[in-house]
């Protein structure tokens, strides 16, 4: 089955040839139309290229401006800035390790929760739910993306944090918290706020991003592929797991990156529920901080070296994202290679 399934990423070589002007296919040099077509094609291609380069320019510009803005701290303090977890605006000593740690942990929690949840939603909306229910439910879930992030923050602060404090935290502390090793992750006072709460709120925020991309791409799977599998007696689950998911894998991963990107950079929602302490604690129930919430918290009042340190944090977020995405791609490539050998 697998060989017969075109992977969206590795499209047959024929298409790489598309970048040639089409006019060569319509071999009639004297034909005006083909000449105009060729010119239009070149023009079109040029415009598209410029647009793509704009993306490049935006990212490079933003990254370089943070590098420039944070130069005093990045080049002045060097490794100390990366390795230290001390953050002291009064004495102008800054270390970025606590925010980096918080960013990575909360995003990881968010992805671990959001990916299976989104997959379930996409599965439900493309295969399980009755037809008339699919569009309304899909629109409703997309609406989760429309809620401003400050509202996630306020809802988290006023409603979800007390809920976590009253129900989830004590439960975790008395069950998972008792386990050896893993237990350390779930022990702590029932404050309600902290890394876990922030991770859950992030997960809710990125579910609509991941699930709507998954749903869209699941729908693009040619019906004949699914139909033939059903005809062979496959169950719905088997069709989705063995046919739909491999066919759309590249795009699904794209959707996950979309969510991961949002989780890494999300600010307001996290700031209100994370506890904002420059601490490194093993427990997910304890407060922490993140790169973007540190910036959002302190930027408005910061001057001098303090401001430079915050902009340098912004640059570090670019670096952290770069590294995270690079690792993710490596993992995918090795996964692909394994599949190729099998």
């Amino acid at each position: 089955m697998k060989e017969g399934t075109p992977h969206s990423g590795g499209v047959p070589g024929f298409f790489t040839g598309l970048s040639m002007p089409i006019a060569t296919h319509v071999a009639d040099p004297g034909n005006d139309r083909s000449r105009i077509d060729a010119r239009n094609d070149a023009l079109f291609r040029g415009i598209l290229r410029v647009c793509a380069l704009l993306v490049l320019a935006a990212l490079l510009g933003a990254a370089l401006s943070t590098l420039w803005g944070g130069r005093e701290v990045l080049f002045g303090d060097g490794w100390h800035f990366l390795a230290s977890s001390q953050w002291n605006p009064v004495e102008n000593r800054y270390g970025a390790w606590a925010p980096i740690y918080g960013t990575l942990v909360t995003s990881l929690i968010a992805i671990v929760i959001a990916v299976p949840l989104s997959f379930g939603i996409a599965l439900c909306l493309t295969e399980v739910a009755p037809l008339w229910l699919r569009t309304p439910v899909a629109t409703a879930i997309e609406l989760l993306a429309a809620i401003p992030s400050i509202i996630y923050g306020m809802w988290g602060l006023f409603v979800f944090v007390p809920f976590m404090a009253a129900h989830v935290d004590p439960m975790l502390d008395s069950t998972l918290g008792r386990l050896p090793f893993v237990g350390a992750l779930f022990r702590g006072p029932p404050l309600g706020l902290g890394l876990l709460t922030a991770g859950i709120v992030l997960a809710i925020m990125i579910v609509p991003f991941i699930s709507s991309v998954m749903r869209e791409v699941f729908q693009t799977v040619p019906a004949r592929l699914k139909e033939s599998a059903y005809a062979l007696g496959s169950t719905t689950w088997e069709v989705v797991w063995d046919i739909v998911l491999p066919y759309t894998r590249q795009a699904v991963i794209g959707g996950i990156f979309l969510g991961l990107g949002r989780a890494l950079g999300e600010t307001m929602a996290v700031t209100f529920v994370l506890g904002n302490a420059y601490d490194l604690s093993a427990s997910l129930l304890m407060p922490g901080t993140s790169i973007s919430s540190s910036i959002a918290n302190e930027f408005n009042e910061a001057v001098g070296l303090h401001r430079s340190a915050l902009i340098a944090l912004g640059f570090l977020l670019f670096v952290v994202t770069f590294v995270v995405l690079l690792i993710a791609r490596r993992m995918l490539r090795s996964l692909k290679r394994k599949e190729g050998n099998a």
Binding site: L56, A62, G261
Partner: peptide, 26 residues
């Protein structure tokens, strides 16, 4: 449509993903 499998395309795609997570304040 034009940059599939090219190095340039891969680079832009990668940078685009980084831009996704750029903190909005930056």
């Amino acid at each position: 449509e034009y940059a599939r499998g090219t190095r340039m395309g891969e680079t832009i795609r990668f940078l685009n993903d980084i831009l996704l997570s750029a903190p909005s304040i930056v």
